[in-house]
Amino acid sequence: MGHVTKGAPKKPTINPKYLAIIGVAVGLPGVYLGKFSPLIPAALAVPALVWAADAIRRIAGYGLGTGVPSIGNLAIGMGVLTALVGLRYEPALGVALAALWGIMYGVIIGRLKILEIPVFTRCITELSVGASVGLMALLSAAAGGYTVDFFQGRLMPMIFLTGFVVAVFWATSMTIFHPFNACLGPGEKQTRTLKLAVGVAGIDVTLAGISALGVAGLNPSIMTLEAAVGIIFLGAAVWIGGYYAFIKAAIKESASVMWTGFPEAKK
């Protein structure tokens, strides 16, 4: 049994740079590889979402004046607009716009002295890109993979008209803000928070799989039943695996409870 050291500086054990590189380098090709099987973007969305959860972890430690969920919702608000541009024209363009617009938003907030946090611009850029890549991968997985004429032919009639987009939208928002919101406190550790992030990303993938099941029922030519069920099982496996690792880590790192006996009665 380990014990929690209060007030110790929070040292990230995984460098955020590696998370960023893995998130983009895995998530963006995942969107393009969706034409082979929708399972690929569903699986490769997870690193980008975990990276965004790590960015929340770094920025929300400053005390923003509002809750942690608000910055997750900000990330998803920026992410959905850039992701839609990416899915309409070119996913790589969406990632570039997400980075550029994130920097410009950070500059506006900093210059007008709305919020003066040194890492704000950097973190908001990471959040914007992470949410954008994650949403692009999940939306393209739910609509049967990114192909030519994806936006008009598949995304609009299958995901937007049916309303599945709302489920994926809010679940992704929760994937980004929930891990740090649940784990924050003096004994917060990066590895434990990110294990929870993997688990919640599994919930998100499962929801995208349920949307894909609906798409398979509507139009079997773009989404097979097997692939939809495959996404659900994949998501459930990530969900259970992430939570299993998280609970194991939480038990290992929790403070030990000692039996000290009854206090002596006053005479």
Binding site: I71, L74, G77
Partner: peptide, 8 residues
Amino acid sequence: GLYLINAN
């Protein structure tokens, strides 16, 4: 998405 950005 726009409301969320302005709300923040």
